[in-house]
Computed example of a mutant assay.
Amino acid sequence: MLERDGRAEEIAAVIAFMASDDASFITGQNIVADGGVTVGTGSPNLFREFGL
């Protein structure tokens, strides 16, 4: 986990890539751009996220 909030330009870069010809062979995928929050579990640990 990166331990920081994502920046708008980081999410925009993912969107730009998916809209580009470089992603033309990618189909039916969920692209998770969450800085590693869901690594290993597929869902965030909200206790850790909110310091509980």
Rank of each mutant, 00 (worst) to 15 (best):
M1K: 04
M1P: 07
M1V: 11
M1L: 07
E3R: 13
E3D: 15
R4P: 07
R4W: 09
R4M: 06
D5R: 10
D5H: 08
G6L: 00
G6S: 00
G6P: 00
R7D: 11
R7T: 11
A8F: 10
A8L: 12
E9I: 15
E9A: 13
E9D: 15
E10S: 05
E10L: 04
E10H: 02
E10A: 02
I11Y: 12
I11N: 00
A12R: 01
A12P: 08
A13Q: 14
A13S: 14
V14I: 14
V14C: 14
V14R: 00
V14G: 04
I15Y: 09
A16E: 13
F17V: 02
F17S: 05
M18L: 15
A19P: 09
A19E: 15
A19V: 11
S20D: 09
S20T: 08
S20L: 12
D21H: 12
D21F: 11
D22F: 11
D22K: 07
D22R: 09
A23E: 04
S24M: 11
S24E: 12
S24L: 10
F25V: 09
I26V: 15
I26G: 06
T27A: 07
T27R: 04
G28I: 01
N30S: 12
N30P: 01
N30Q: 14
N30I: 14
N30E: 15
I31H: 05
I31L: 12
V32I: 13
V32D: 05
V32M: 05
A33Q: 04
D34F: 12
D34I: 13
G35P: 00
G35N: 00
G35C: 03
G35R: 00
G36N: 00
V37I: 14
V37D: 12
T38S: 15
V39K: 12
G40L: 06
G40F: 05
G40E: 06
G40N: 02
T41M: 06
T41A: 08
T41K: 06
G42H: 02
G42M: 04
G42R: 03
G42K: 00
S43Y: 15
S43Q: 14
S43V: 13
P44C: 06
P44S: 05
P44V: 07
P44Q: 05
L46Y: 09
F47W: 08
F47A: 09
F47N: 08
F47M: 06
R48G: 05
R48L: 10
R48H: 05
E49K: 03
E49V: 09
F50C: 03
F50E: 00
L52M: 08
L52D: 08
